[in-house]
Amino acid sequence: MSRAGSTRVHLYGWLLLAPAAILLIAFTHYPTGATLVHSVFSEGTALRPSTFVGLENYGFMMGDEVFWRVVGNNFWFAVGTIPASIALALLMAVWVNGRLPARGLVRMAYFTPTILPMIAVANIWLFFYSPDIGLIDQVLRLFGASGHNWLGDPDTVLGCIIIMTIWKESGFFMIFYLAALQSLPPELEEAAKLEGAKRWYIFRRITFPLLMPTTLFVLINATINSFKLVDHLFILTKGGPDNASSLLLYYIYEVAFSFFEEAYAATLTAVLLAVLAVISIGQFAILDKRIHYR
């Protein structure tokens, strides 16, 4: 091919790439870079222009009690939601994959929470958790318990949020497990059955290992979601009481748009990004070796 020809081919390539590349750079890579830059500058005001302060914002963060509280919350939120929603998703998928009357209906029922917007979900659960008139208190009253302000109590609020998130997420993850289960050849289970393997043994030794790629995918998604999903906090708790239910991203929102401390918000965002990157890479690196891809 001539030189001019090959230049033209290159040009074509870049033109085809351009729309996606421009969008990605404008809305993903540039903001990421800008955030990192922001985080090492001081907050600029009309009187004091922002100046380079190095790691001062990070230093402030280390001493910020609310930050540590929020990190702690997020940790427990992740620990509470990830394994539970994955296990529930797997359980439901195995169940609705089997012979079941009206299983189309059951599958849809499990998937419904996923298609609801988080805000709508939060409103439903707000009714469940309301003191005295809420569903939970009404049911508990039948057993003689008195009303409890579930969302107003710092000891129970995070648990409430965790339960709601599991309810919302597991239906979504179930779909992935269901798809994976249906792509497994049925002869594998039959072969194992002929050898005398019981259901639990087959699940442990055959089904579950073959679902590992799906589990990794779901695990990474669940982890990211545990840092990303905060819509419900706006409806249910606004992070309260006393930051007992605030999560990292919600705190970032507050810092940026309630307290208008953009530089500090950028600092927190940088930390969030770093945490997510480390977790995702770590999961891939550790699990990938132990997964059998077909």
């Binding site: 050849p185 002869e187 039959e190 072969a191 194992a192 002929l194 050898e195 005398g196 393997a197 290992p209």
Partner: peptide, 20 residues
């Protein structure tokens, strides 16, 4: 009786080997 009680071996058309 269940398949395992029949004490029978089977070779499947697709072989049904466990890939992992």
């Amino acid at each position: 009786k269940s398949p395992s009680e029949r004490r029978i071996s089977m070779v499947f058309q697709s072989y049904a080997l466990f890939p992992h």
